[in-house]
Amino acid sequence: VTKDEIKHLGWLSRIELSDDELDRYTSQIEQIIAYLDTLDRIELEKAEPIKARKKFADLRPDESHAFGADALGTKNRKDGFVKGPRMV
């Protein structure tokens, strides 16, 4: 991973990166890639699938409850629509 690649990722993300941030992010991304390489070397062919330890009957019942609050702020509007910021 090069600094130019990190700079390009910053440009794609619309983030301005300082030289210190470029150095730090370059080393962090190299560590992440090294970790992913380690995960790729794990042999999963012989691994047993994990089975659920709880029975479905032991789980809480799935019940619906009415939500009393006005989450979107449409309760007092005549038209019932959500008003967002003006796009210019």
Rank of each mutant, 00 (worst) to 15 (best):
V1Q: 08
V1N: 06
T2Y: 04
D4H: 08
D4Y: 09
E5Y: 01
I6N: 01
I6M: 02
K7Y: 05
K7Q: 07
K7M: 08
H8G: 15
L9V: 10
G10M: 00
W11H: 14
W11C: 15
S13T: 02
S13G: 00
R14Q: 09
R14I: 07
I15V: 03
I15Y: 02
I15R: 04
E16W: 04
E16L: 05
S18M: 00
D19L: 10
D19N: 14
D19W: 08
D20V: 03
D20S: 06
D20Y: 07
D20F: 05
L22Q: 01
L22P: 00
D23R: 12
R24E: 15
R24G: 15
R24Q: 14
Y25Q: 11
Y25V: 11
T26L: 11
S27T: 05
S27E: 09
S27L: 06
S27Q: 03
Q28C: 10
I29A: 04
E30W: 03
Q31K: 02
Q31F: 01
Q31I: 00
I32D: 06
I32Q: 06
I33E: 05
I33F: 02
I33T: 01
A34L: 08
A34S: 04
A34N: 08
Y35D: 12
Y35M: 10
L36M: 14
L36F: 13
T38I: 10
D40K: 15
R41Y: 15
R41S: 14
R41L: 15
I42P: 03
I42C: 09
I42V: 11
L44E: 13
L44I: 10
E45I: 12
K46W: 10
A47I: 13
E48F: 04
P49D: 07
I50E: 07
I50W: 10
K51G: 11
K51E: 09
A52I: 12
K54F: 15
K54D: 14
K55E: 15
K55D: 14
F56R: 14
A57N: 13
D58K: 15
R60A: 00
R60W: 01
R60T: 01
P61F: 04
P61L: 03
D62H: 13
S64Q: 05
S64A: 01
H65R: 03
H65P: 00
H65N: 01
H65L: 00
H65F: 01
A66K: 14
A66N: 12
A66L: 12
F67M: 05
F67R: 07
F67K: 06
A69W: 11
D70Q: 06
D70F: 01
A71P: 08
A71M: 09
A71Q: 09
A71W: 05
A71E: 08
L72S: 04
L72E: 07
L72F: 00
L72T: 08
L72G: 06
G73H: 00
T74Y: 00
K75D: 07
N76M: 02
N76G: 03
N76V: 04
N76H: 02
N76R: 02
N76F: 01
N76C: 05
R77L: 02
K78Q: 11
K78G: 11
K78F: 11
D79E: 11
D79W: 13
D79V: 10
G80H: 04
G80Y: 03
F81E: 04
G84E: 08
G84S: 08
G84R: 03
G84Q: 07
P85S: 10
P85G: 09
P85K: 10
P85F: 09
R86L: 12
R86A: 12
M87S: 06
M87N: 05
V88R: 11
V88C: 13
